[in-house]
Simulated scan of single mutants.
Amino acid sequence: MTRIVVHAGFHKTGTSSLQDYLRHHRAELRERAAIYLKEDFPEVGYATRAFGFRPSLWRRWRFRRALRAFLAGLPDDDQIFLSWEGFSGIMPGHRRPLTGLVSGYDRAAIPLAKITRDELRRRFGPQAQIVFLYTLRRRESWLRSVWGHVVRSIQIRHDMSEFLEMMKDTPSLEEEAALLARALAPTPVETAWLEDLTPLPQGPAAAALRLIGLSEAEIAALPPARRTNIGNPPALSEAFLALNREISDKAELKRRKDALLHSRTPYE
């Protein structure tokens, strides 16, 4: 009987740190689980992003087809761990072409999770044990981190306070996870808070290590995590905002932002 843990999100909840740790210690954890990260399934990643931006029936089918092809190539293992926040769709704060601001996950995350569960059962059999993991973060801290990401990655012209007002009706990640748990029942949905994981030596990866069956003593014996995907300093985010308001040409805007990212010393 195969057991599969799907770490499906959410964005800005320590996912990069978790994945970086598993990437660097994948070999020594191999006896406990076969670990697959986003670089192992690029076609699936492309399909989830496309569906997240425009959740159509056609794009849902493309995601299912890509996931089925990836799973068909996997060897049988006692335990498998899949991790990519894109399994939840796109990060709130982005905009969909037709419907505007993305203010929540459920429109994409629920169908993506159901398809993922169905395809895992198709590949590994109805007896497969499937568990979903969602890492969480306190609402205001999370929204501030989201703003820092979108002001760097897209041409948002709203400052932090304006963005928080725009997102005032966005559900908390705890509420989003509860919606997913109800939609996926009886498939188990586990959650872990970034605020509880950050002080641990292995950081957010501790949630994954626990779910694949390592004891606390075994986890403590592993090397500590390194910090990854650290948020931009406030002054750098303000510089990105100023560029978003000043430059309309997307290519030039990207060039100027990249230049700032590669000369961060004044903003540290």
Rank of each mutant, 00 (worst) to 15 (best):
R152W: 15
L243K: 04
D78M: 11
L18S: 02
Y267F: 15
A220E: 08
L197P: 08
R123F: 08
W61K: 09
D77P: 12
L98D: 13
R62T: 05
V146L: 05
T135A: 06
T48I: 12
G93P: 01
N229F: 14
A192T: 07
F132D: 02
W61L: 08
Q19C: 02
A208E: 01
L71C: 10
A221N: 11
I115D: 07
R137P: 10
L101S: 04
N232I: 13
S237K: 10
F53E: 10
L184T: 06
L136W: 03
F41A: 13
P126A: 15
E31C: 06
R3F: 04
K257L: 02
T191F: 00
S145G: 06
D106V: 10
H7D: 09
R64F: 01
F124T: 06
L57M: 08
K254F: 12
A242F: 07
Q155W: 06
A183R: 01
T116H: 05
G125Y: 07
R117D: 13
A225S: 11
A8M: 09
I115L: 12
D118T: 12
N232P: 13
P224V: 11
A217V: 05
R227S: 15
R138I: 10
F124W: 09
E195N: 03
I4M: 12
A225D: 08
R65P: 04
G203V: 11
D159V: 08
A128T: 14
L29W: 00
Q155T: 08
G148T: 12
H7S: 11
A108D: 03
S161M: 09
F53I: 06
W61M: 04
G14E: 01
M1A: 14
L200A: 10
L243N: 01
Y267A: 10
L197V: 08
A66P: 00
G100D: 07
R30N: 14
I115F: 07
I219N: 05
R32T: 15
L243F: 02
P234S: 09
L179P: 03
P111M: 01
P92S: 06
R59G: 04
L29T: 09
T99I: 13
F70W: 13
S248A: 05
E252G: 08
H24W: 07
I110D: 03
D258C: 06
M166I: 14
W61N: 02
R26K: 07
L22S: 01
L184A: 05
V146S: 14
I154K: 12
Y105K: 03
R157G: 05
P223Q: 07
R59L: 10
L180M: 11
I154A: 12
E195R: 00
V146R: 04
R32A: 11
P266W: 08
G148Q: 12
P75W: 01
K254C: 11
R23G: 08
